[in-house]
Design a protein around this nucleic acid. Structure first.
Ligand code: ZN
Ligand code: ZN
Ligand code: ZN
Ligand code: ZN
Lengths: 154, 154
DNA sequence: GGTTGAAATGATATGATATATCATTATTTA
DNA sequence: TAAATAATGATATATCATATCATTTCAACC
């Protein structure tokens, strides 16, 4: 499914955590792995279930939420507000620092594409914000629509 | 609180519904009124409670959800995905047709400003979308930050 | 190596948001 | 008025999220 090497991304995540003095414990890593292997965003409860399936070990949902919080704080996971689901960051293995993310969410197949926000867009956003005397706070854009492959289906 | 005349907006909502052959029943109208009078977005449960207070009449939350659905279909109410709350459209009394909305949400006082998306921004968005072969689906932008008045407070 | 304090995780309860389904009432249409 | 349709009520339950206290793990220190 994934167009990237899960193990490589996990190693990169580990490196990035070490750099920041954050502890990527084995359970947290497994949670991230579940999301990396998932083909679409998952809810905390779905993640708990996938965790059980993939490790034969039970995990309380409460713990999943806490681990997701950790992963989000370290920009390894994002939460999609529009459907209350979580997704692994698509740029863990990229060298550049994490930009403000933009998610293209397919309403047919639920797949999500995370792209960096286009410069022109950032500029337009800032301008629009400025006109309203509003102080922006790390935006995250979620755009719903239909992905390329779903468009092709009849 | 409101910087507009609630009754006038309600009349306009009624006109707009008549035009579209939609039935703005008295209960639906009351729900809209609750939101017009609210100083911030409200959850369906909060709306049910405000409805009770303002009309001395009980209303099942299930009904509130249905009425909110109706109001959203008619662009009289929007749902903010980032906090699962509902807000009256700020442009009910405007003559022009409803644009894709952009919400500036203050994380301090919770007040929301709905503005029409700036043209440059729409253009940048479309471009970004096009580059990704994605077919956009009536977008709605939710931007979090701090409003002007909260910025002034120390 | 044992002690101790902090961080992580588990266990349990509960709150908050949302939907499914069937019954009843109101409104429109013929 | 009768029949069809739309709106609302009632009830149950699913889904998402947080609060709180107990236990375990781990690093730091002596
Ligand atoms: Zn990311
Ligand atoms: Zn798709
Ligand atoms: Zn609006
Ligand atoms: Zn404010």
């Amino acid at each position: 499914m994934a167009t990237f090497d899960v193990d490589n991304v996990l190693q990169q995540a580990e490196r990035s955590c070490v750099e920041h003095g954050a502890r990527l414990t084995s359970k947290r890593k497994h949670i991230l792995e579940v999301l990396l292997k998932a083909e679409a965003p998952r809810s905390a409860y779905e993640i708990a279930e996938l965790y059980r399936q993939q490790t034969d070990e039970n995990i309380p949902v409460m713990s999943v939420y806490r681990m997701l919080d950790f992963l989000m704080q370290n920009s390894l996971v994002h939460k999609l507000a529009s459907n209350n689901k979580f997704i692994a960051c698509a740029h863990i293995a990229c060298s550049h620092s994490h930009q403000t993310p933009q998610f293209l969410i397919c309403d047919k197949c639920q797949q999500v594409r995370e792209i960096g926000v286009d410069k022109q867009l950032i500029h337009a956003l800032e301008e629009s914000i400025e006109n309203n005397h509003f102080q922006l706070n790390s935006p995250q854009l979620e755009l719903h629509g239909v992905c390329e492959s779903c468009q092709k289906q009849h």
